[in-house]
Amino acid sequence: MAHLARLALTEAEIDAFTGQLGDILDHAADIEALNVDGIEATSHPLPRTNVFREDTLRPSLDRDEVLSQAPAAEAGQFRVPPVLGESQ
């Protein structure tokens, strides 16, 4: 799972997180045991739908400030290690 999320964890961290994840799965198992007959499935905890904003422009960030946060930048762009595979 650490590999899928591209997280570099130490052995000690892996032990700690494995225990925590196990607790979470146990909790999910407890919930699975509940009788939910007749209760409608929801896709969101909030009882709201259709929250929209107007299609109006808001100022974007200053590019120099944005790029100053990046490990590397070049020609107004983020510079990243070479990537294999391809985008979506």
Partner: peptide, 8 residues
């Protein structure tokens, strides 16, 4: 065989 990539 790119040396690096730029992102916009």
């Amino acid at each position: 065989d790119a040396n690096y990539s730029l992102v916009d």
